Computed example of a mutant assay.
Amino acid sequence: MNMVKISLTALLALMLTACGNDGAPREHGTLVSISAQGEATRVPDVAGISAGVVTEAEESDAAMKANAKQMEKVIKAIRKAGIEEKDIQTSGISLTPRYEYPQNTAGSPNRPGRTLVGYVARNTVNLKVRDIGKLGDVLSALTEAGANQIHGPSLEVGDPEPALAEARQQALAKAQARVQTYADALGMKVHRLVSVSEGGSGGMPRPMMRAEMASADARTPVAPGETTLSVNLDLVFELED
């Protein structure tokens, strides 16, 4: 809900005038605060993906070696797909033990009698695909190379500034129309814009998908849709008689 708010500055000015303090600065207008939002839509042109390899073995060293061997193939496939080095970043490496528990103690807090049965090694990388048209091929190349965990994509606009500029213009136009409505209703005129501040902005929605162990002989279809970028403006106008 948009609300008209008389600012503290204006109230103080009126009080000083009533007290006859001729030495204090005065504001003769009424201040009105307006909040407005502008939006612009664009087709995403950048996709972020998290891909990794999970391996298991009875010995920790064997789990890590198998993981490293398989992950090396995945990295080679990523580079072969045309992903630049700056867009490839390791996000996590882990090694955890895997236990089995007696069936009747699975829900017990202490879970006594557990047996160490092996180790699970994980290695994950984040990558950016800057050509959405190749995203399906990249996803398929990852699975063909042995990636057994894929999360994403998170879709975004690579250069959001033109869309944000459009959203700012839209928000400003809305604010100007609203303050003019208040001025007309009060029998006043819009004198000037006192201040403007910009709130957070971002893209939404961002379609998400998750694939694990996808078929190697199929190309994963991806629909980029549209991303909405928004800008919130808080503006203060001065009205005068």
Rank of each mutant, 00 (worst) to 15 (best):
M1D: 13
N2Y: 06
N2S: 13
V4Y: 05
I6T: 14
S7C: 09
S7H: 02
S7R: 07
L8P: 01
L11F: 11
L12W: 06
A13C: 08
L14I: 06
C19N: 12
N21D: 11
E27F: 03
H28W: 00
H28F: 07
G29W: 01
A36P: 01
A36K: 04
G38V: 02
G48A: 05
G48P: 02
I49L: 11
G52V: 01
V54D: 12
T55M: 09
E59T: 15
S60D: 15
D61V: 11
K65W: 10
K65R: 09
A66G: 15
A66K: 05
N67P: 00
A68I: 07
Q70P: 02
E72G: 09
K73C: 08
I75G: 00
K76H: 10
E85L: 02
K86V: 08
D87E: 02
I88Q: 02
S91D: 07
S94L: 10
E100W: 06
P102N: 05
N104G: 14
N104M: 15
T105Y: 08
P109E: 08
R111G: 08
G113W: 05
G113R: 03
T115G: 07
V117D: 03
V117T: 08
G118R: 02
V120T: 15
A121E: 09
R122K: 14
R122I: 11
N123C: 11
T124W: 01
N126T: 09
K128P: 02
D131Y: 13
I132C: 13
L135M: 08
L135A: 12
L135S: 03
G136H: 03
D137F: 11
A141E: 01
T143E: 05
E144T: 05
A145C: 04
A147L: 08
A147P: 00
H151Y: 10
P153M: 05
E156T: 04
E156P: 04
G158Q: 11
P162H: 14
A167S: 06
A167R: 00
R168V: 14
Q169I: 15
Q170E: 13
A171Q: 02
A173R: 10
A175K: 01
A175H: 00
A177I: 04
Q180L: 12
T181M: 14
D184C: 06
A185F: 02
L186G: 12
L186Q: 12
K189T: 12
V190N: 03
R192A: 12
V194K: 02
V194P: 06
S195L: 04
S195P: 00
V196T: 10
S197I: 01
S197R: 00
E198K: 04
G200L: 14
S201M: 06
G202K: 09
P205S: 09
P207K: 12
A211E: 04
A211P: 01
E212Y: 09
A214M: 13
A214P: 03
S215W: 02
A216V: 09
A216S: 10
D217N: 15
D217E: 14
T220N: 08
P221T: 06
P221K: 04
V222L: 07
A223R: 12
P224F: 05
E226D: 15
L229E: 03
V231Y: 07
L235Q: 03
V236A: 10
E240F: 03
D241N: 09
